[in-house]
């Protein structure tokens, strides 16, 4: 490059890069590093999960039965499908099909919102019946009935006599923190995807330049991936 000030390439090429490929490679590497730190962010929670599960296996077993696996399963399917539409959005933006890109991104957002709606019902129910973390744990009303069923399901025999594992509160501590932080990532994802839709509609992305859509989809796959682990670890243990 001869002159630092001269325009040296297409509009989307930032001044400090030499070529569009260099710009794309840098963005991709940066994004993967970001995803690595996301995984380490969640890793602390996974470590805490395994420690408390090994300490209080009976509480985790009962706790798992207190979660509605059907809702969790619906959310898993919804999120997996949204990952597929996110990937399709990347494909269509690479082909320069702007309208299709918007459509796929919109479906992704709808799925993400659906996920949050299901999560909302799950959370409000848990709060309503007092199945809460730590010192807030105070089952009442239907919660007691659910607890009875969960204890019986977990132990397969023996009647419920009004006792439950004390450390159920630890299970709900872990449950709310893990799904809460995951939910926060879903919300952030919704915001970013909406922003991508706006930019796409304004014609910011072409066959040659669609890096932000690509990066957004990468992020969305990570959100999906974390849920893939959360679902069995929380909902499906015995």
């Amino acid at each position: 490059m001869a002159d630092a000030h001269a325009h040296h390439g297409p509009d989307y090429l930032e001044h400090h890069f030499e070529t569009p490929l260099q710009q794309f490679d840098a963005a991709k590497l940066g994004m993967w590093i970001f995803l690595a730190q996301e995984i380490l962010f969640f890793s602390g929670l996974f470590v805490a999960y395994f420690i408390f599960r090994s300490w209080y296996p009976e509480a985790f077993s009962v706790g798992s039965h207190l979660l509605d696996w059907k809702m969790g399963a619906i959310n898993t399917v919804v999120l997996l499908f949204s990952s597929f539409t996110a990937a399709m959005a990347v494909r269509s933006s690479q082909l320069g099909e702007t309208k299709k890109t918007t459509a796929f991104l919109a479906v992704t957002v709808v799925c993400a919102l659906g996920f949050m709606v299901v999560k909302y019902f799950e959370y409000t129910h848990k709060i309503h019946v007092g199945l809460l973390p730590g010192s807030l744990f105070n089952p009442q009303g239907e919660g007691v009935e659910e607890l009875r069923a969960a204890v019986e399901a977990a132990y397969a025999s023996g009647p419920f006599e009004g006792t439950y594992p004390y450390h159920l509160r630890s299970f709900f501590g872990i449950y709310f923190v893990m799904t809460g932080l995951h939910g926060l990532h879903v919300l952030i994802g919704i915001g970013v995807i909406l922003w991508m839709i706006v930019r796409n509609q304004k014609g910011a992305f072409t066959k040659d330049y669609n890096t932000p859509v690509d990066m957004t989809a990468l992020y969305w796959h990570l959100v999906d991936l974390i849920w893939i682990y959360l679902f069995p670890l929380l909902y499906l243990i015995d």
Partner: peptide, 29 residues
Amino acid sequence: LATPVLAITLLLLIMEKTLTIGIFDPALG
């Protein structure tokens, strides 16, 4: 690679103080 672990640790501490989630407090297991 290391800083996100501090981030989650401090976040858990904050939640311990505000919501008493019982991850670090021995009284809550």
